[in-house]
């Protein structure tokens, strides 16, 4: 084991508070990444690094009903990752510092990662 990676699952409305705690502890935002685990169920991982100690916050959302609050008013650089999550997975994120409105990546297919695996063969 290279390092332990604790993951804390938080609810959508508690997300910003949890992120503020990380900000107060001077943690660096490592990445925000999304994973499709099932139809209508997406996990978003917020990874932080606190002096080489890695930790995760995880929210589970349904893009059809949930709207994720942006954390770019806390961590300004988060808007990059949030635009990416929005473009690739079609998850609505509200209040990004710079909202590219779906033009962060120029793609032929809208929200390619939301499509079922192996649907589009080339």
């Amino acid at each position: 084991m290279i390092e332990s990676q604790p993951t804390e699952i938080v609810t959508l409305d508690r997300l910003k508070d949890a992120v503020r705690i990380k900000w107060a502890a001077h943690a660096r935002l490592v990445q925000i990444g999304c994973t499709k685990t099932a139809e209508d169920q997406y996990e978003i991982n917020y990874s932080f690094d606190e002096n080489l100690k890695f930790s995760n916050l995880r929210i589970v959302v349904n893009p059809a009903t949930d709207r994720v609050p942006s954390i770019s008013d806390i961590y300004w650089n988060a808007f990059f990752y949030e635009n990416e999550v929005h473009d690739l997975f079609g998850i609505t994120i509200e209040g990004m510092a710079i909202d590219f409105k779906g033009n962060f990546y120029r793609m032929a297919v809208k929200h390619p990662f939301a499509a079922p695996a192996g649907q589009k063969k080339s």
């Binding site: 590219f100 962060f104 990546y105 793609m107 390619p112 192996g118």
Partner: peptide, 14 residues
Amino acid sequence: SIGFIHRGLEKLVE
């Protein structure tokens, strides 16, 4: 503004 050469390599795992 980036995204001129997005290749979607992450999708290739499928």
